[in-house]
Simulated assay, not measured.
Amino acid sequence: MNHLAANMRSSIVVFLSAVLALNACAPSETAEQKTQRERAKAGLALWEQKCKTEAGEKIYRRVEDVEGITLLKVRPPAGENEWHDRMWPGAAFAHEGTAEEYIKDFLGYEEAFGPEGKPSPITPTARGAINTSYKAGPHERPGYRYVDAIDEKDGRRYRYSGSVKVVGQKDQTAPGIVDEMKNEGDRFDPNVYRWTLDKTYAPDPAPRYAVTYEDHVVPEERALGVASSTVKVLDIQANEVLGELTVFAFTYGFESRGSSAWLRARICPTYGGGSGSPSRLFTDQVLVPRKDN
């Protein structure tokens, strides 16, 4: 938290310095500009307070070797209209995947690379990115083997999983493939593989563990450009909350159309190093996915 606090203070100093610089350079300030500046300053102060007192993670119980989970809600698609909407419910998780991409986040494996493209260690404070690209062999940090979710169109529970399928053949006349054929000899594989999302009717019973989220739309906070949301990990059978992650976002500039204000928001905590998969990267700390064989 000390590192997070330092980053927050640094961001705040930079922001306020920019505000002061603008004030010094501007020969005059309209009443509307003054109102916007004061609102942004108040919003930044509120966000800083929330980051210190309410944001962060709480893990009450950890469960190992989990095969599958239920997503009680899936984040709906979002675009420019939502990113610019001060009251958009999903604002605090603006960079997270939506619809099927949200589901894929829980199925993909985690990996991290350093500046030279070499694998780098993954630690609680230095997480990687979620990937679903085809990669042969077992993964050190796999996702869940399946994810159940309710389809809003028909109200049925479906089971999603990922599998690698042959989707084509390599062009054996291409220079790179010719070299590969020479080097591999009898081991050459002409197939092109791709990870794909599979969807089937979910069998009973439903998974014991589930994930949901609660987006908070507090008018007084949204007026100042502050949004928040809480991810909850649940044991349905025991009716128990296993963990919670609360995120706060702050932004400004809603007066400028097309600003995608929420995509520029400051976030605390920046779970997973600010990746686009904070819900997954928190959930797998509570419900640890079963390792690949």
Rank of each mutant, 00 (worst) to 15 (best):
residue 75 R to K: 07
residue 104 K to D: 09
residue 78 A to T: 09
residue 119 P to D: 13
residue 26 A to K: 02
residue 76 P to E: 14
residue 34 K to P: 01
residue 75 R to I: 12
residue 83 W to V: 00
residue 107 L to Q: 07
residue 23 N to E: 06
residue 120 S to I: 14
residue 126 A to F: 05
residue 98 T to W: 09
residue 44 L to F: 03
residue 54 E to D: 15
residue 94 A to F: 01
residue 80 E to R: 07
residue 64 E to D: 02
residue 116 E to L: 14
residue 108 G to M: 06
residue 106 F to K: 04
residue 74 V to K: 07
residue 49 Q to Y: 01
residue 28 S to A: 14
residue 39 R to S: 14
residue 81 N to L: 02
residue 49 Q to H: 03
residue 52 K to S: 00
residue 84 H to Y: 04
residue 30 T to G: 13
residue 79 G to T: 08
residue 71 L to K: 02
residue 56 G to E: 02
residue 65 D to R: 05
residue 81 N to I: 03
residue 28 S to V: 10
residue 53 T to W: 14
residue 71 L to F: 04
residue 27 P to L: 13
residue 120 S to A: 15
residue 110 E to G: 01
residue 72 L to K: 10
residue 40 A to Q: 11
residue 125 T to G: 01
residue 50 K to M: 15
residue 122 I to C: 06
residue 78 A to H: 08
residue 60 Y to W: 08
residue 82 E to V: 01
residue 43 G to M: 06
residue 56 G to M: 02
residue 71 L to V: 03
residue 39 R to P: 05
residue 106 F to C: 04
residue 24 A to I: 03
residue 89 P to I: 10
residue 66 V to C: 15
residue 42 A to S: 05
residue 58 K to H: 15
residue 123 T to A: 02
residue 97 G to S: 11
residue 27 P to R: 12
residue 107 L to V: 01
residue 55 A to Y: 09
residue 114 G to I: 12
residue 68 G to E: 06
residue 119 P to H: 14
residue 34 K to G: 09
residue 60 Y to M: 14
residue 34 K to F: 08
residue 55 A to V: 13
residue 61 R to Q: 15
residue 90 G to A: 08
residue 112 A to T: 13
residue 22 L to W: 11
residue 82 E to H: 04
residue 46 L to T: 04
residue 127 R to K: 10
residue 93 F to D: 01
residue 28 S to Q: 09
residue 101 E to Y: 05
residue 30 T to P: 01
residue 59 I to V: 15
residue 109 Y to D: 02
residue 61 R to D: 14
residue 102 Y to L: 03
residue 110 E to M: 02
residue 75 R to E: 04
residue 53 T to Q: 14
residue 55 A to K: 06
residue 121 P to T: 11
residue 43 G to A: 04
residue 88 W to M: 13
residue 72 L to N: 08
residue 54 E to L: 15
residue 51 C to S: 13
residue 78 A to D: 03
residue 83 W to N: 12
residue 26 A to R: 05
residue 88 W to A: 12
residue 69 I to N: 04
residue 115 P to F: 06
residue 103 I to L: 11
residue 72 L to W: 09
residue 74 V to W: 08
residue 35 T to W: 03
residue 52 K to V: 10
residue 80 E to P: 02
residue 118 K to H: 04
residue 110 E to C: 02
residue 115 P to T: 14
residue 27 P to H: 09
residue 84 H to W: 10
residue 26 A to S: 09
residue 127 R to N: 08
residue 56 G to S: 06
residue 23 N to S: 00
residue 58 K to G: 09
residue 83 W to Q: 04
residue 37 R to P: 02
residue 124 P to S: 07
residue 45 A to D: 06
residue 114 G to M: 08
residue 68 G to S: 14
residue 32 E to D: 10
residue 44 L to S: 11
residue 112 A to L: 15
residue 26 A to Y: 00
residue 113 F to K: 11
residue 100 E to I: 00
residue 28 S to K: 11
residue 119 P to I: 15
residue 49 Q to A: 00
residue 58 K to E: 15
residue 126 A to Q: 13
residue 116 E to P: 06
residue 52 K to C: 00
residue 114 G to N: 03
residue 125 T to V: 11
residue 33 Q to E: 07
residue 117 G to K: 14
residue 111 E to Y: 07
residue 121 P to F: 11
residue 22 L to D: 15
residue 125 T to D: 05
